[in-house]
Nucleic acid binder design. Structure first.
Lengths: 189, 189
DNA sequence: AACAACATGTAAGCAGTTACATGATTTA
DNA sequence: TAAATCATGTAACTGCTTACATGTTGTT
């Protein structure tokens, strides 16, 4: 049960609505934790009931009303506790990798197509991360920001996301060229 | 529901028992799909009921008896279908990254400790992948194996795993040195 | 006129985790 | 003699996904 902590961490840079959080969990946050809007609304309600978040209603005119949430002292304490506790190793789940693992028994063309699609997604994400990183840095250059910038946490996770997607892109391209080369000359040992 | 496909893929290189699979899902397979032994035993039983796997009892003397499973034609057909179907993007879940995202509000020392531990784990995994890759290659050099080796699927996913862990290691080290540097001079903007 | 963005949820079902349960043999 | 390896499961719980449900405003 750690979606709760991901939500608390996401709310550290100010109050957000469920809708705003859902978008955050679709970009920067999504590198290490993914969640659908329904899940977020449910989790926010739960965290509020438990007193780890405080919600306030904001009445809007040309928009539906919304509820903004912020982390309470109890919420901060819970984050502290969580950060100090040992965690289990990360878990990854990727259908495409399962398909590649079965590459020898499966249609190569379909695999190549999906690897190329994935490479495109990775490239787009890299671009997104670059933007996010620039935005977080503001006027400072990277060394300066790493040394003295505010909110280093999200910056570091973004750096991890960029590294991950670069590897993803490179590997997809490598896998595609290997599979293509074997398609032509299918003399397997 | 794709553990089933991961199991089918894992059984492509011959029959295995639940126990053997559990070990495989703890090393090579774990890069893209993680599963506990209980889950595997349950899934194997289910796949056998559905006719995608065939199990046979092997009586042993100095060991408990075991059941070895292999993929049936129906299982292969299901893998084909799965490989050709579109899949949703990979999902990652990593507690440690959630903690790093909250780095500005939590205890830096505890974070550094966990990042170093993770770096160690990553280094060990890299070594493990190197071994696995050498073992799969056998006498061939890498270019040769990529071009003509048997069972390229597991080799490619292993290459992905090694890339991932290298990035992990580098990033953990980077994050540690950033956090250390900030610990000393805590003049945040 | 159609679609994207804003905004929030409920209900049912399925997948994954944790705890429990057992017991022989080989290695340190 | 203690621990690791071999070997297989059940039961209860929790968390995640899919499907459903609604309605306005701004953009193309």
């Amino acid at each position: 049960m750690a979606l709760r902590h991901a939500v608390l961490a996401a709310l550290l840079d100010g109050e957000h609505s469920g809708y705003q959080l859902a978008k955050a969990f679709d970009v920067g946050m999504a590198n290490f934790w993914h969640a659908l809007p329904q899940q977020l609304y449910a989790e926010l309600a739960k965290l509020e009931r438990e007193g780890l978040l405080a919600g306030r209603e904001v009445v809007q005119e040309s928009r539906p009303n919304k509820r903004l949430f912020s982390v309470t002292d109890a919420g901060l304490a819970e984050l502290h506790r969580f950060a100090a506790a040992p965690s289990k190793p990360s878990s990854i789940r990727d259908d495409l990798m399962v398909k590649v693992a079965a590459a020898d028994s499966v249609d190569a063309a379909a695999l190549i197509e999906q690897l190329e699609e994935r490479a495109g997604i990775a490239a787009a994400k890299i671009e997104l991360f670059e933007q996010l990183l620039r935005k977080m840095r503001g006027d400072l250059d990277e060394a300066e920001f790493l040394a003295r910038g505010a909110r280093i946490g999200p910056y570091l996770t973004c750096l991890r996301g960029r590294r991950f997607e670069r590897e993803n892109l490179d590997w997809c391209n490598e896998a595609v060229s290997v599979l293509r080369a074997r398609e032509g000359s299918d003399a397997q040992l």
